[in-house]
Amino acid sequence: MRRVLVTGASRGIGRAVATAFAERGDRVAVHYGHDRAAAEKTLRDLPGSGHAVVGGDIADPEAARRIVDAAVAALGGIEVLVNNAALAPAADNIHRVAEVEQARWQHIWQHMLAINLLGPVHLTYAVAQHLIARDAPGHIVNIGSRGAFKGEPDFPAYGASKAALQAFGQSMAIALAPHGISVTSVAPGFVDTERQTSKLTAPEGDSVRAQSPFGRVGTPAEVAAAVVYLASSEATWASGAILDLNGASYLRT
């Protein structure tokens, strides 16, 4: 039995990841940023017992530390951190460089980097310190994005934040390996989550599905399965890896 902190686990990929760990007998701290009710639903639906809900704004360094402290107290420790919480591309945060005004451009960049990069940075530090103090091995898995490689012209701050997160993970893989802590990332393409339902059911949905030669988009369960593997002792030797999960919709060379 492992103790697992999953950030942004109120819905979507985070909920699927929390469920996948709980199905394997692990105890999970379900983190939420704002929607406690949704996090409570995730908690109620998890199989097994001993799970908990923890809340807080990961962009705040002190709040990030308190999130980890609360998860440690509720679970009795942490062996696995999944950095999933993020500010995702949406209609209200499009920032095309040729169209957006400077003040909005600056605000979106600062906000996305604070949540998508610095939040995981603060959480990783706190969990790493916890594991090192215990002299215990552990696993940190970052949820990156295909957009880190292919570019996000409508959401450049998102693409940059995910590229930086994945690079940060590789730096931590080297730094934490002497302590028996592995650090990996997954880079999903388009995933069928609740926030994407309107796009997938609209006329543009066909073009989104056509990005992959499989003719579909990914599922939260597929991402969760990869995360569970990367957080296993069998995957320790994969530390530093970035696993593409995009149905061959974008191939890195």
Rank of each mutant, 00 (worst) to 15 (best):
G205T: 08
G180C: 01
P137A: 14
Y32N: 00
T193G: 03
G151L: 08
V72Y: 02
S161L: 10
Q110N: 13
V54M: 03
A248Q: 13
I174E: 15
G12E: 01
D26R: 05
A39E: 03
P47S: 09
V186Q: 03
A16N: 05
N84R: 05
L113I: 07
V54C: 04
D60M: 08
R216T: 13
I242W: 07
Q211C: 14
R44W: 02
V72F: 00
G159A: 09
H111S: 15
P203M: 07
A114C: 09
Q102Y: 12
D154E: 15
A18R: 06
Y125E: 14
N116A: 08
I115W: 12
G8N: 04
R96Y: 10
L123P: 00
L243G: 10
T124N: 03
Y229E: 04
A16H: 01
H95T: 02
L123G: 00
A71N: 05
G215N: 03
A226N: 04
W109S: 10
T193P: 09
D35C: 00
E101K: 02
Y125R: 15
R195F: 03
L243I: 11
A136P: 13
D135V: 15
A85M: 05
L118R: 12
Y125W: 15
A173S: 06
A221D: 12
L75W: 00
I115D: 11
A177H: 12
T201P: 10
S198P: 11
P213Y: 09
P178D: 10
F21R: 03
A39C: 06
V223L: 02
D206K: 12
V208K: 01
V68C: 07
R96P: 06
A103G: 11
E62S: 09
V30S: 01
V6A: 07
G151T: 12
G247T: 09
V100T: 11
D69T: 06
R3I: 08
H107C: 10
A64R: 07
A38R: 02
D92S: 09
A18V: 00
A136E: 15
V53F: 01
I181F: 09
N142C: 08
G205A: 05
